[in-house]
Design a protein around this nucleic acid. Structure first.
Length: 531
DNA sequence: GCCATCACG
DNA sequence: ACGTACGTGATGGCA
């Protein structure tokens, strides 16, 4: 008979950097108890034969880890709910589940951390107990539903991946504050100079470049008529118009400054490390996300300032063309499969087909266009979209007819891909290789062939992450997991071992789901994050 | 509070 | 005739 305890923490702050654990409520078959001293329940937390259940372990188990308490063997009712309901955003709070499954109205008046700073009353104790009791009762109910829906494999993978995410959340990234600050100064200077120039050229001294409404009309006054001020549209004029080119550069600088300037710096902890709020399940396809700040969206320029501590190295490893490989697996397209098996460059191959020349004669620009075509068509792009993208991204202007021909050429080369998309459009359910499934009626047509691909890649990625976390030594740091890239920080003399381990875990992990296509992983190491 | 825009994959 | 590529998170402008 398995021993299970639900555990709920109450803390004096949202962040363990600034607060303390105030109460721990524990509920088991023998009832509930509450303590203000974690030491009282330390042995339960550490005992691998006792299953702990949290609701949102990326809060509770993360806090415990940051406060140096070991937690072994745990599950998470929030994650189970997310797996079960498909909706990973709404309806997974403890209050929602208590109401839905237990017919219980939980009182959430004390939820906010500021309610846990002063004297604790019976009311506080009752509040914590109610949460852990609800969690305790929910766990078997949710597990039953998971089994009924055939989602055990998904739930188990997600549960196992939690440990890795908690570790990543705890470890954070050492950030070169000084270096980034002076880099920002350069962006400020450049943005200011550009703004002056642009205002003068457009004869509009008050122009707010952040306002697309104002920018559009100012550009019109010098004869540049754009339908929108987004990069993609402006790029069509940029090559011919110096002022548009300046606007594009200004936008870039402004973006960096607003999103990754002071706001980023304010998120650095007293240990110099940058920590975001990781979510195990941020998307319905099974990807993880990160916010405050979004470490998955750090601009390349900022990654240079994510550094290793002295004597250590940052090691990165990323899957090469993983979604295309998954597409090859799912579609079974012979040409695409053979290409990957032969270790060929798929972008070059596609370019050779649409530009009607041999692979050796494909230029770099043509290969880039091949890349746009490969990626665009994975997502179900139309000829219209393809034409726009090629024009905006590659400065390649083609007619709609030519774009249509590119598309037809592509599907002539990879007929299995067309068949795959067709099958997905006609099925009542679409599935990932890792056990997720969606009712087609609930999905826009295009999502029906995108979800299986994105989802399978995300699931294989999580298998890799789980393997890595299980196998990597405790003193290494897990820094980031970004859809197809894993980042660790290790002592310099262990770099080679880390590169090997990453490569091995990633090919093996993805190989759990993708069996017919070779998986390639590129590794890198250095004093900072290189992508 | 929504929209447009853009950072990442 | 119509709209036109998937998934995020974060921002400033604007109503």
């Amino acid at each position: 008979m398995r021993v299970v305890y639900a555990v709920d923490l109450e803390t004096t702050s949202l962040s363990p950097d600034e607060g303390d654990i105030r109460l721990v409520a524990v509920t088991g078959a023998d009832g509930s108890r509450v303590t203000s001293n974690v030491r009282d329940v330390e042995t339960i937390l550490r005992d691998p034969s006792v299953l702990k259940v949290f609701h949102n372990s990326l809060f509770d188990a993360y806090w415990l880890r940051r406060k140096k308490f070991e937690v072994r063997n745990f599950a998470d009712t929030m994650v189970l709910s997310q797996v079960l309901h498909g909706d990973v955003k709404a309806g997974n709070k403890l209050v929602d589940l208590a109401k839905q499954y237990l017919g219980l109205e939980l009182n959430k008046e004390l939820q906010s951390a500021e309610n846990w700073l002063g004297e604790l009353t019976d009311q506080h104790v009752a509040y914590a107990t109610a949460d852990s009791e609800a969690t305790y009762r929910l766990y078997p109910i949710l597990m039953d539903r998971i089994r009924e829906r055939g989602l055990e494999a998904v739930a188990e993978r997600e549960t196992r991946a939690l440990t890795a995410l908690i570790r990543m959340q705890s470890d954070g990234i050492l950030f070169d504050y000084e270096g980034w600050t002076s880099e920002l100064d350069r962006y400020v200077a450049s943005a200011q100079a550009l703004q002056e120039d642009i205002r003068a050229k457009l004869e509009c001294p008050e122009l707010n470049l952040g306002s697309s409404v104002q920018l559009k009309s100012a550009l019109l006054s010098v004869g540049v008529n754009v339908s929108s001020t987004k990069q993609e549209e402006l790029a069509k004029f940029g090559y011919a118009s110096p002022v548009v080119e300046m606007v594009l550069r200004h936008k870039k600088a402004l973006k960096i400054l607003s999103a990754y300037g002071d706001k980023l710096l304010r998120r650095i902890g007293s240990d110099g490390r940058l920590r975001g709020d990781w979510r195990l399940l941020g998307t319905v396809t099974g990807r993880s996300t990160c916010s405050n700040p979004n470490l998955q969206g750090l601009p390349k320029t900022a990654k240079r300032f994510c550094v290793a501590e002295p004597g250590w190295s940052i090691v990165t490893a990323d899957f090469s063309q993983i979604e295309l490989r998954v597409l090859a697996e799912l579609s079974g397209d012979p040409e695409m499969l053979q290409s990957f098996r032969d270790g060929k460059d798929l972008h070059r191959k596609t370019a050779a087909k649409v530009f009607a020349k041999s692979e050796e004669d494909v230029t770099d620009r043509e290969r880039q266009a091949g890349k746009v075509i490969n990626f665009g068509l994975v997502y179900g792009m139309t000829a219209f979209g393809l034409r726009n993208k090629l024009s905006a991204q590659e400065g390649l202007s083609i007619t709609l007819e030519q774009a249509e021909r590119f598309r037809n050429d592509y599907f002539e080369l990879y007929p299995g891909v067309l068949r795959f998309q067709d099958t997905m459009l006609r099925s009542s359910r679409v599935k990932s290789l890792g056990g997720r499934h969606w009712d087609s009626k609930a999905l826009k047509e295009i999502m029906r062939f995108n979800y299986p691909i994105q989802s399978t890649a995300a699931e294989g990625f999580k298998e890799s992450l789980i393997l890595l976390n299980d196998r990597m030594p405790g003193h290494w740091r897990l820094i980031a997991a970004i859809h197809d890239e894993l980042v660790v920080e290790v002592p310099e003399q262990e770099v080679e071992r880390a590169e090997q381990l990453l490569q091995d875990c990633m090919t093996t992990g993805m190989g759990c789901l993708v069996t017919g296509v070779p998986i390639e992983v590129d590794v890198n190491a250095g004093a900072h994050w290189i992508k």
